[in-house]
Design a protein around this nucleic acid. Sequence first.
DNA 1: GCGACAG
DNA 2: ATCTTGTCGC
Length: 227
Amino acid sequence: MTTSPLHDWNLAPAEAIALQRRLAGRVERADRLAEVRHIAGVDIGFEESGAITRAAVVVLAWPRGSEREWTVVERVVHREPTRMPYVPGLLSFRELPAALGAFDELETQPQLVMVDGQGIAHPRRLGVASHLGLWLDLPTIGVAKSRLCGRHAEPGPERGDWTPLTDGHEVIGAVLRSRSGVKPVFVSPGHRISLPTALDWVIHCLGRTKLPEPTRLADRLASRRGQ
DNA sequence: GCGACAG
DNA sequence: ATCTTGTCGC
């Protein structure tokens, strides 16, 4: 077996929390991105009543062909037995093992990764997107469908309108109206990216749907609803 | 003690 | 996350 770059995954809740506090100090909140040619979207689904975790990664070419033309470069689905239950705040310990398995099978090297879940908009500033970014040493962005922590005002009604997500005086993300008339998404930096840049990328990847294309396609593939 | 709580 | 049909609206 290989030696884990950061840690192993079988941890008790108290240990996982202590680990998150340590890892959070390694998260980079400033932009450190290479020229983007491929953007990956990641999401997790379950089979067998939750006994099997199914990770999906979709890689899209950038820049895209035309306004609403995306080129899917690669798609990977990786399954493995589920190890941990869902515990709010400890999501990465449940989902990352399978996600990393999917990345191991990926042939294309993305320069940016969008994850279904929070980045630093997390109680200890280490949501699943940040944790994955540290492990892969790649820029990551968290795009969640609901809030885990922080306070915010309701964003405007038009696509692109957003308000800051804050915790105390710290800005930890943005609440973005990705589509008018629909509940907003929660965008937060994962690793090696700033909030303004993360927001730009998410907005660039928006189609007519609520979720940006990378995450939307990964979502479909993970739930096997996708093709 | 009473809520809140990514997926 | 997942279990699930029809239905309202652009």
